[in-house]
Amino acid sequence: MPTVLLVRHGRTTANAGGILAGRARGVRLDAVGRDQAVRAAERVAGVPLARVVTSPLERCRQTARALVERQGEAPEQVVERGITECDYGQWQGRALKDLAGEPLWKVVQTQPSAAAFPGGESLAAMQSRSVAAIRRHDAEVAERYGADAVWAAVSHGDVIKSVLADALGMHLDLFQRIVVGPASVSIVRYGPHRPDVIATNSEAGDLSWLRAAAPAGDAPVGGGAGHGEPDGEAGLQPS
């Protein structure tokens, strides 16, 4: 199956201010976030992307635009509501330092599968629709572009953490152990037997080695030899 790059949007004004932006409109990348998006795009520039899927929220659209602008040939572009931010309901727009005093905060931290935001959605519902959307696009990319295609999904921290938890076979209650920083790139292949998680939360390193990466298959006993270094350039070492 293809390779999907899970790209979190760059830092926003809300991130910098400690505000839970949620689905609020007008939340854009700040100067740091714009630089982060460009760096992520430069890392991916050497990998022809078949499709770029983005959350409809502005900060993800900005990050996705940076990816597309640095591709030699413009990839297919799709806006996907299935990977939009969690609906935090009445928590949206509030300061994280204040939310930390709410009883629900501890549930979110220790038992997220039971967390449902007042007036919003549950984290379990967020994971369900996000994983379904990613797997659907992956199957579509495979059918249209082939098993060796690479595509990108630009989304949000909690969404990407929940998708990675599913790929790793982790219960949602463990997903807070996963870190997904602004403009980081995580890499997954949905193989015939199981998903292969190639990298998580990577923030540096050229990704051009993905051009020569084989589609997902059987896991090599002993771990295998890893990827090569196309064009003589050192690539990101899978984690």
Rank of each mutant, 00 (worst) to 15 (best):
P238I: 09
A115R: 02
L96I: 12
V107T: 15
A225E: 11
P75G: 13
A212D: 15
Q77F: 14
V52I: 04
W209K: 03
L20P: 00
A124W: 10
P192Y: 02
H9C: 08
H156A: 06
Q109P: 00
A165G: 11
V38P: 01
N15H: 10
A213S: 08
G46A: 11
T12P: 02
P118F: 08
G82W: 02
V163T: 07
S55V: 01
R177D: 08
Q62A: 13
H137V: 07
Q90E: 15
V150R: 13
V159H: 01
H171A: 15
A142P: 01
T84A: 12
S130R: 00
R94E: 08
A116S: 13
G89Q: 06
G82M: 02
V107R: 09
V221Y: 01
R136E: 15
C86T: 13
D218P: 01
D196R: 10
Q92D: 12
G191A: 07
D206T: 01
R81Q: 08
A152G: 11
A115P: 04
P48F: 03
Q71T: 04
A183G: 08
G22V: 01
L99Q: 09
A24I: 02
T13P: 00
A124R: 15
E85P: 08
G157W: 06
D148V: 01
Y190G: 05
L5D: 13
D173W: 04
S128Y: 06
Q90D: 15
D87P: 02
Y190L: 15
V27R: 11
A152F: 06
R39E: 15
V141K: 13
A14Q: 03
A152H: 12
E73G: 03
I134G: 11
L6P: 12
V27M: 04
L236M: 09
C60R: 04
S239N: 15
A45C: 06
E58S: 12
T200E: 12
L210V: 13
F117D: 13
M1E: 12
R51P: 04
A100Y: 00
G228H: 01
E203C: 03
D138H: 14
R177M: 11
W91Q: 14
M1I: 01
P56T: 02
L236V: 06
V38D: 09
